[in-house]
Computed example of a mutant assay.
Amino acid sequence: MASRLTTRMFCAMRETANIPHSQSRWEKLKNSKAGVWSRSLASDYKEACREAVVGIYEHPVKASVYVSVLGGALTCFLSKPDKSSFEAALLERSSQLGLLSSWIRSATSDKHVQSLLKLRNEGRLRHINLGILSIIYSTDYDPDSTLYEAQCSSLSVLWRNLPGRVLDVGFVGHWWVLDSKMTNYDVNEEEFTGLPVHMRVTAPPGVQEVELNERLHRESWLALKLQVEK
Rank of each mutant, 00 (worst) to 15 (best):
A2K: 03
A2P: 02
T6E: 14
R8W: 06
R8E: 12
M9N: 11
M9Y: 09
C11I: 11
A12Q: 10
A12L: 11
T16K: 12
I19H: 05
K28E: 03
K28S: 04
K28D: 06
L29H: 03
L29T: 01
V36Q: 06
W37E: 13
L41K: 12
K46F: 04
A48P: 04
G55N: 15
I56F: 03
V67M: 14
V67P: 06
V69Q: 10
V69L: 14
G71P: 02
G72T: 09
A73V: 07
L74R: 08
C76Y: 01
L78Q: 05
D82P: 01
K83Q: 08
S84L: 00
F86V: 02
E87Q: 10
L90M: 01
L91P: 01
S95M: 07
L97T: 04
L97N: 01
I104D: 14
T108K: 13
S109I: 01
D110I: 01
H112V: 04
V113H: 00
L119H: 08
H127Y: 15
L133R: 11
T139V: 15
D140Y: 06
Y141K: 12
Y141W: 14
S145T: 02
S145A: 08
T146C: 05
C152Q: 01
S156M: 11
S156H: 12
S156R: 15
W159Y: 12
R160C: 07
D168H: 04
G173E: 02
H174P: 05
H174L: 04
W175Y: 12
L178R: 06
D179T: 01
M182L: 03
D186S: 11
V187I: 12
E190I: 08
F192P: 09
G194H: 12
V197A: 04
M199V: 00
R200M: 07
A203P: 01
A203C: 06
P205R: 06
E209I: 04
V210F: 07
N213Q: 13
N213H: 10
E214M: 07
H217Q: 09
L222R: 15
L224E: 15
L224A: 14
K225H: 12
E229I: 10
E229R: 08
E229L: 11
